[in-house]
Design a protein around this nucleic acid. Sequence first.
RNA 1: GCCAACCUAGCUCAGUUGGUAGAGCAACGCACUCGUAAUGCGUAGGUCAGGGGUUCGAAUCCCCUGGUUGGCUCCA
Length: 640
Amino acid sequence: MSVTVTLPDGSNKVLAEGATVYDVAASIGSGLAKAALAGKIDGNAVDLNTLVKEGDQVEIITSKSPEALDILRHSTAHVMAEAMQMVFPGAQIAFGPQTETGFFYDFELDHSASTDDFEAIEAKIAEIVSKDEPFVREIVTRSQAEELFAAQHFKLEHVRELPADAEISVYRHGEFIDLCTGPHLPSAGKIGAFKLMKVAGAYWKGDASREMLQRVYGTAFFTKKDLDTYLFNIEEAEKRDHRKLGRELDIFMMDELAGAGLPLYLPHGARIIRLMQEWLRRELYRRGYEEVITPHIYRAEVWKTSGHYDFYHENMYFFHINEGTEDEPRLSEYAVKPMNCPGHVLLYRNDIHSYRDLPIRYFEFGTVYRHEMSGVVHGLLRARGFTQDDAHVFCRVDQVVDEVVAILDLADIVMKTFGFDYEAEISTRPAKSIGSDEMWEFAESALKEACARRDLAYEINEGDGAFYGPKIDIKVKDAIGRTWQCSTVQVDFNFPERFDLTYRTAENSTERPFMLHRALFGSIERFLGILIEHYAGALPVWLSPIEVRVIPIADRHIEGAQALRARLEAADIRVEVDTDNAPMRVKIAKAQSDKIPYMLVVGDKELADNTVSVRERHEGDLGTQNVDDFIEMMKQYVIR
RNA sequence: GCCAACCUAGCUCAGUUGGUAGAGCAACGCACUCGUAAUGCGUAGGUCAGGGGUUCGAAUCCCCUGGUUGGCUCCA
């Protein structure tokens, strides 16, 4: 008997009797294969003829397939668990999947493992790999599984939670046996290169109330060369880390005296943030937004009305102040705002609104403070104090879709302007929520309709909405492929209700408006952090804190350089002069590492005939230009 | 908040088994006055994150606090 399988190139291949997927793989020049047939076969040395009928389509995965690396890494995780049990006798094993960049395995150990143990563990792994023993799949009954894992309480717990009809498969590798659905490499020798990366803590089943396990991260590749490339890329990514560049380019700093997650902006950083705001403010004014300014602190009553006092208490900064006398104290409680909504809601409530006034769009560059848990702060990307480009749109039911479309439109302009690709997600009603079914249904379909109207593809994030309404999130892809949540559009049923917001209809009745929250940058600081990494610090000219640096060749050219600076400043160009007593090429090198877009070299020649020698940071020497021509060229970078 | 590691000059980092600190860059001074990615010489700079303990002696070992990093959890 023989079967026909389909190979990766689309051609068919007839399998001889008794062939295994690995025979197929070998015959097409690959050492790794996985045959998948309705989930019944995986990449082990299974005799295809026992499982595949004539005419079945069998997919063969070779080491060139995208899935292959996942399989390799998951197999490496097994080998690592095997090694860990030798280095740490009695280790309890939990789960060990592959990840985007490698794999991990969770353990419960008598003594904490640390990176100091990596050498010993890696040596064991290498030893196991060199033995090149096969991974063998077995199907077992539930009672067999319970017996096999009698000494592994996490595995045992997992076996007992498997549904009654589940097929239970285990993989043996040498002495090591693991509960696992597979697939795996044919044998451990296929692991070409591996490296343990770091240790971390992780809760069993991701549940903070369960055991804290030790998670060991590693990565693996088919070849040493691939591993080296990966490690090199990590180094490159570290070079563009916004925390490193933020310090090198004088953008922001942190001081432990100030407190965690509280960045201080140096002049360059402040400049960039103001440029971002200046640009956005113009776009918003053109689209019917009105800028407002609201307090940074409010009496606790505001937060009791909004619900934050109960729901968000542990993330807020509260303080008390004596508004009485020393003898007769009268304590008032205040909190620093963790969001801007209440201010805008109070502004709306200040007046009676007609249906004709809507939509009302209030925006604010609102700095908020959230006491994030100590373990989560991360440079500018997750800070405790940050500024949102926050806006709230109060509108009628018939305006919701149009408003959301307009917001998506603007989000698209923002992302294109800053050079980002993005993806959209719609988050729907969570288990714990307020509002009627009709409201949720209306809001969710309004968001979907808006996306459809803009031809914006989106994923659905089931049950991940806020308790007060559904939302569209826009995630930005940065230069190294990571995604960050930035823009958000949310429908809110909570605030209009709690603050009793109303408007008068054409029939002179009272109606409750819809309230949309929206932010485009999200947090300006987070957006800046992503920008810095995206451009490796070389921000677009229009956002560069210094656009031009004038470089006098010798000391006698400094005076002329200062005169040139004055001319450029008069044309609103952000310019400075390098007056250091250093050779010109040293000044050039300095300007390059400062990522200054344009360097203007001036010496005897230039000063004599009113020209500049222009050097662009990426293009290099552009030759000589008239000063007036250069000023004219720079006009394109003015925000207008 | 949890797990682990880390904190030495402004920055990047050395500092062997405990014997009371070092380099490069930056800064400052002098010389050089230079044509597109780093000129030479010199000077100064540190309660080794802070506090407590062990010890004849602590950057080094132990404890506490703060901060940082990587994860987990969280992210109205």
